[in-house]
Amino acid sequence: MSSSSEGTSRESALLVVRRYAWAFDAQDSAALGELFTDDVRLEFVAEGGEWFSSQGLPAVLSMLEGSMRSEVRTRHLFTNELSSVNAAGEYEVDVYFLLVLRGARWAPASSGTYRFTVRPTPVGWRICRMVNHLDKVLDLDGS
C-alpha cells in the first residue's frame, strides 16, 4: 500500500469509528446499520472478566438498540486513537473512551478501550469486529 493510499484508507477507517460514536449517541439505528458488515461481531468484556458477544448484523443492531434507552442520553468521548493494518488488510483502530450518561444529570458511566476492526467493502469501509473492554461501570449517581 502506498503512503498516500494508506493515509486515505486510515482516515476512512477512523471516520467509520467516529461515526459509530455519533450514531450511537444520536440513537440512530439506521446510521449504525450502515457502519457494520453483515457478519459483524461485537464483544464486551467488563472489569473482572464478565463478557457477552453478538454476531451478525441483525443481532448486533438489536443488542445496540437495547442499549439505547430514549430516557438516557449518551456521549462517547474517544481519545488516543492508534491504528495498524492487520494481515488481512483491515485496519485495527484502538481508542480510549469515556462514556457519559445523562439521566437526571450528566455523569461518567464507564471508561475503557475499544478495538474496532474496519475493512473495505464495495460500499465503503465498515466495522467487522468491535471489542469493548470496560474498566468500570458506574451508576448514574457516579458511584
Results as ranks from 00 to 15, higher is better:
1 M>E: 09
4 S>G: 09
4 S>A: 15
4 S>Y: 12
5 S>C: 05
6 E>V: 06
6 E>S: 07
6 E>W: 11
8 T>I: 15
10 R>D: 00
12 S>M: 05
13 A>E: 01
14 L>E: 15
23 A>C: 09
24 F>P: 07
26 A>Y: 07
28 D>T: 01
28 D>Q: 03
29 S>C: 10
29 S>G: 07
31 A>R: 06
33 G>Y: 02
33 G>A: 12
33 G>K: 01
34 E>M: 14
34 E>A: 10
37 T>F: 11
38 D>K: 14
41 R>T: 03
41 R>Y: 06
46 A>V: 06
46 A>R: 03
47 E>L: 03
47 E>Y: 09
48 G>T: 05
51 W>V: 11
52 F>I: 08
52 F>R: 14
52 F>T: 04
55 Q>S: 11
55 Q>T: 04
56 G>F: 02
58 P>E: 11
59 A>Y: 02
62 S>N: 06
63 M>P: 03
63 M>G: 13
64 L>H: 05
65 E>N: 06
66 G>P: 01
68 M>Q: 04
68 M>I: 04
68 M>P: 00
70 S>G: 14
72 V>P: 07
73 R>P: 00
73 R>G: 07
74 T>Q: 06
75 R>Q: 15
76 H>W: 02
76 H>E: 00
76 H>T: 02
76 H>I: 07
77 L>W: 01
79 T>M: 07
79 T>H: 03
81 E>S: 01
84 S>K: 09
86 N>S: 11
86 N>R: 00
86 N>F: 05
87 A>I: 03
87 A>Y: 12
90 E>H: 14
91 Y>Q: 03
92 E>T: 02
92 E>C: 08
94 D>E: 10
95 V>A: 12
97 F>H: 04
97 F>R: 01
97 F>D: 01
98 L>I: 08
99 L>Q: 06
99 L>Y: 12
99 L>K: 09
100 V>R: 08
101 L>M: 12
101 L>Y: 13
102 R>D: 01
102 R>N: 06
103 G>T: 10
104 A>G: 09
111 S>C: 12
114 Y>M: 11
117 T>P: 04
117 T>V: 05
118 V>T: 10
119 R>H: 01
119 R>F: 00
119 R>C: 08
121 T>K: 02
122 P>E: 10
125 W>N: 04
125 W>L: 00
126 R>T: 07
126 R>I: 01
126 R>W: 06
127 I>E: 02
128 C>G: 05
128 C>L: 12
128 C>S: 09
130 M>K: 15
130 M>V: 11
130 M>A: 10
132 N>H: 13
133 H>N: 15
134 L>R: 13
134 L>I: 15
136 K>F: 03
138 L>G: 08
139 D>K: 15
140 L>C: 11
141 D>Q: 07
142 G>I: 07
143 S>D: 02
